[in-house]
Design a protein around this nucleic acid. Structure first.
Length: 551
RNA sequence: GCGCCCGUAGCUCAGUUGGAUAGAGCAACUGCCUUCUAAGCAGUAGGCCACUGGUUCGAAUCCAGUCGGGCGCACCA
């Protein structure tokens, strides 16, 4: 919607230039903003200030020329020059009622745009090692990644969601060994459990399952069968947790398959061919310092012939590019930020633009209970799992809390607060707005007033309240908020938008009756309510949070 | 020591491709349910945007430095 205002300004400036009122120069990007103060109009632009440098004229002088042009637009009520050279635009109410019609017409599709231009995005997130259950930090990554996928998809990107499974390597071997020991313990052997093995209860559960499926006396079982068993079971559990959390993936990308399919030797040769490798102390290195200003160069193949995790990652990211993606997004825990440079280096080595890679770092979640921190020690094998939290507070509250903050800011997650069905819990604020409107519409229906499918725009003429137009103005910004959220890869922008929307609707509801004795006014307000509910539902869907009809 | 992130109201945080008088929620205090959902609303109060300097018409936003907090610096995965 704001795009149209953009057009109004652009056309005004261009025609002023064409007529010689302004010197013809190339246009800077015009910023249209929603002014903070009512008196500053529906929209404002600083175009004149931006032009003043190039035109060597005072901003206010330029502003008055542009302003006069803008005022001639049929959608514009009036246009003023203010302050140092802002142009404040006041739109006719017909402009706003058209927005309402659009929302009603587009329904669940309102807010969708082509801002992303169909660019192909590979969004890799969670990618937890299948050596233990997902913990709360993975949950945050899952919520952010999934929501971002929804948002970017809505904003016109073509998004593929991928989970990279580290299903080979030392950690999976250790998990297998851990289960093997617990299994031996179960069948009565005395064991000593090494310190670096996985100690969680889930390992004992896996051992039990193994026994149940393979018989009690199963002895002399190859270690690899424990490893395969444990890896498969853990991955299954992770998949189920994610599914119950409302997160689906397009691809489950196996490191093991990548290695088997590509062949490590082939990958190594390809990397060596780039010329960005060297041998030192018997190991093969990549020049990540030179390529991406990394702290140090990184080893691809150790002196003992083993390959590193980094090599797999190089192969993986090379493959991502090969599959034709324009943008690669990785959602990583903040403790991985040291890895960014080496991946960028790898992309560069193969001649790709390293800027196609965007890494979203997820800061830690500090779990609280009624204001006091919940102790978490992964070393002891006892950490709070995503499953525990979503079972306790519910998926909606859990996801909403994860999406309330910028990803790279640490998050305090208070379990008691998230559970509380009380005003201080922010989760229900938006949901309540939706449910409340549904209830109003239901009430109207019972009173014999149905919302027409294809409403006559003239009824909107009954909307006169300032709050009504503020609501519509906010509704009209939804598409742009989604587009910005996608562009900046920051889902929390949608969360804030929705909280604001609810924060405008609730006071409006309290002040104004929707269902009145006057038919057209009732219809107009019902339609406005329906539009608010539509946008609230669309936004909540982007967060992966339900929009309930009743609460 | 080097690199990255962060420092905004009592608390948790928005606000950064530089814009007009810096916002919200919670906590605190005062009010509002015989009419569409009180999981709601109205009101009060709360600030050297860590500090110092620079860039300019204009800085919470950009730059440099200082202080304070977090994380990372493997031939680990």
């Amino acid at each position: 919607m704001r795009v149209r205002v953009h057009e109004i300004v652009r056309i005004a400036v261009e025609s002023a230039m064409a007529e010689g009122a302004l010197t013809l120069i190339s246009l800077p990007e015009i910023i249209i903003e929603k002014p903070k103060k009512d008196g500053f109009g529906d929209f404002a632009t600083n175009a004149a200030m931006l032009l003043s440098g190039a035109l060597k004229k005072p901003p206010r002088e330029i502003a008055s020329v542009i302003s006069a042009k803008i005022a001639k637009n049929p959608l514009v009520e009036k246009c003023e020059v203010a302050g140092p050279g802002f142009i404040n635009i006041f739109l006719k109410s017909s402009y706003w009622t058209k927005v309402l019609s659009e929302i009603i017409k587009e329904g669940a599709g309102f807010g969708r745009s082509n801002a992303g231009g169909g660019k192909k995005v590979l969004l890799e997130f969670v990618s937890a090692n299948p050596t233990g259950p997902l913990h709360i930090g993975h949950g945050r990554g899952a919520a952010v990644g999934d929501s971002l996928a929804r948002i970017m998809g809505f904003a016109g990107f073509k998004v593929t969601r991928e989970f990279y499974i580290n299903d080979i390597g030392a950690q999976t071997i250790i998990l297998g060994e851990s289960v093997k020991l617990r299994f031996e313990e179960l069948i009565g052997k005395i064991i000593s459990f090494p310190d670096n093995y996985y100690k969680g209860e889930y390992v004992k559960e896996l051992a039990k399952e193994f026994r149940d499926e393979n018989g009690k006396g199963a002895n002399d079982i190859a270690p690899s069968s424990f490893q395969n068993f444990a890896g498969k079971k853990m991955l299954g559990r992770i998949k189920k947790d994610l599914k119950d959390f409302g997160v689906e993936f397009d691809n489950w990308y196996s490191e093991g398959e990548l290695v088997r399919h590509e062949g490590l030797g082939k990958i190594l040769t390809a990397i060596e061919k780039t010329g960005f490798t060297f041998v030192e102390d018997g190991a093969l290195w990549m020049k990540t310092k030179e390529l991406a200003n990394d702290d140090k160069d990184r080893v691809l193949q150790k002196a003992n012939g083993e390959t590193t995790y980094f090599l797999s990652d190089v192969a993986y990211h090379k493959d991502k590019v090969k599959r034709g993606f324009d943008i690669l997004i990785n959602v990583w825990g903040a403790d991985h930020h040291g890895y960014e440079a080496r991946i960028r280096a790898a992309l560069k080595a193969f001649g790709h633009d390293p800027d196609m890679l965007k890494i979203i770092f997820i800061q830690l979640v500090a779990l609280m209970r009624s204001g006091a921190p919940v102790p978490m020690g992964k070393r002891e094998g006892e950490f709070v799992t995503l499953r525990q939290v979503m079972d306790e507070v519910g998926v909606d509250a859990c996801r909403f809390f994860f999406l309330m903050r910028k990803s790279d800011a640490q998050l305090d997650f208070d379990l008691e607060l998230a559970k509380k069905q009380a005003p201080e819990n922010p989760v229900y604020y938006v949901q309540y707005c939706h449910a409340r409107i549904k209830s109003i519409i239901e009430f109207a229906k019972e009173s014999g007033i149905n919302i027409p499918e294809d409403p006559d725009e003239n009824v909107f003429g009954r909307l006169k309240e300032k709050e009504e137009f503020e609501l519509i103005r906010h509704l009209s910004a939804f598409e742009e908020v989604v587009a910005k959220s996608a562009r900046d890869m920051e889902p929390h922008k949608v969360t804030f938008y929705l909280t604001e929307l609810a924060g405008m609707f609730h006071p409006y509801y309290n002040k104004n009756r929707v269902v009145t004795s006057e038919k057209n006014l009732t219809l107009a307000r019902l339609l406005l309510c329906k539009a608010v509910a539509t946008v609230a539902a669309n936004g909540l869907t982007l967060l992966g949070v339900n929009a309930p009809d009743k609460m």
